[in-house]
Design a protein around this nucleic acid. Structure first.
Lengths: 127, 127
DNA sequence: GCTTGATCCTCTAGTGGCTAGAGGATGCAT
DNA sequence: ATGCATCCTCTAGCCACTAGAGGATCAAGC
C-alpha cells in the first residue's frame, strides 16, 4: 500500500489523522495499523470506499447486531457475481470474434473489424 | 448511448466533427453512424479508447494486413480472462467469509468483520 | 398562431480511487 | 559528512464518462 494512498484515505476521512513526531511525521499505532489493514483487505475484495466507511463505523459499535454487516457483504458478493457473469458473456463474444481470426488477411476482409462494426451477430449480449 | 458521450468522443478526437444544420445541430450520415456503432460495440466489449482509436485507424486502411487487429483483440481477450480469474478468486473469498455469517449475532463476534480485519485466512489470494 | 415539452447547443465541474510529480525536510547508515 | 531513502505538502492527472446550468430550437397538438 503506497504512502499517497494512505494520505488519500486520511483526506477523505476514512482514516483518522494520526499523532505526529516532533518533526511532523505520522505515527501509526497498533489500532491505526489494524484499521489500515482492514481497509486494504476490504478494498482488495472490491468493497467500495463508502461500504468500507460503513463497515468501519459498524465495527466501532461492538454491541450492535451485525445484520447490516451481513447485508453489505451479501451485496458485494452479488455485485461480484454480476460482474463475473458480464465478463463471461464478454469472453464468449470475444472468443467468437477471435475464432474467425484472419491472420495474414487484409483489413478489408477482417472478420474482427467486421464483427465490431456489425452488432447483428451478438445474440442479445448487450440487449 | 447518451448525447454527452458522443460529445465526449468528438472532443477527444475519436469521432470527427460532423457537419451542422443552419441552426448548428449536428448531422450524422451513415458512415458516422456506423463509426459510432463500432465504437459503442467495442466499448461494450471492454476495449479501451486507445485501442478503439487504433482499430478505427486500421479499419480506414483496408489494404493493410490485419495482424495488428488480431493482436489487439487477443490482448483484450487475455485481459478479460485475467479479470475473470481475479474476480473468481474474490468470489471464493467472499463466499468463504459469508459462509461464516453470523446473522443475529453482535458485531463484536462478527466473523465478517473479523475476516476483513484478519488477512491470515486468505491463502495467497492477495499475495 | 401558440403553447408545450423534448431535444439540442455550449460549457464547467464532478465521479471513484487513486497515481505522479514538484520541491523541500528529515532520518539512518556508512 | 555524505549519500540516499523516506517523509512532508501540495497540485494536477488518469479513465470514461456523467450531471447540471442556462439557453436555443424543433415538432406536435390545439
Amino acid at each position: 500500500m503506497k504512502v499517497p494512498t494512505i494520505r488519500f484515505y486520511e483526506k477523505i476521512g476514512l482514516l483518522e489523522e494520526p499523532p505526529r513526531t516532533a518533526s511532523d511525521r505520522r505515527l501509526y499505532d497498533g489500532a491505526a495499523t489494524r484499521r489500515l489493514a482492514f481497509i486494504r483487505h476490504a478494498r482488495q475484495l472490491g468493497f467500495e470506499i463508502d461500504d468500507i466507511r460503513a463497515l468501519l463505523a459498524l465495527s466501532d459499535e461492538p454491541d450492535q447486531p451485525c445484520t447490516e454487516v451481513n447485508r453489505i457483504a451479501e451485496r458485494q458478493l452479488a455485485a461480484v457475481e454480476t460482474r463475473i457473469a458480464g465478463l463471461q458473456a464478454l469472453h464468449a463474444e470475444l472468443t467468437r470474434i477471435q475464432a474467425a481470426s484472419c491472420s495474414g488477411g487484409r483489413i478489408s476482409d477482417c472478420r474482427v473489424i467486421e464483427a465490431l462494426g456489425n452488432h447483428a451477430h451478438c445474440d442479445g449480449l448487450h440487449a
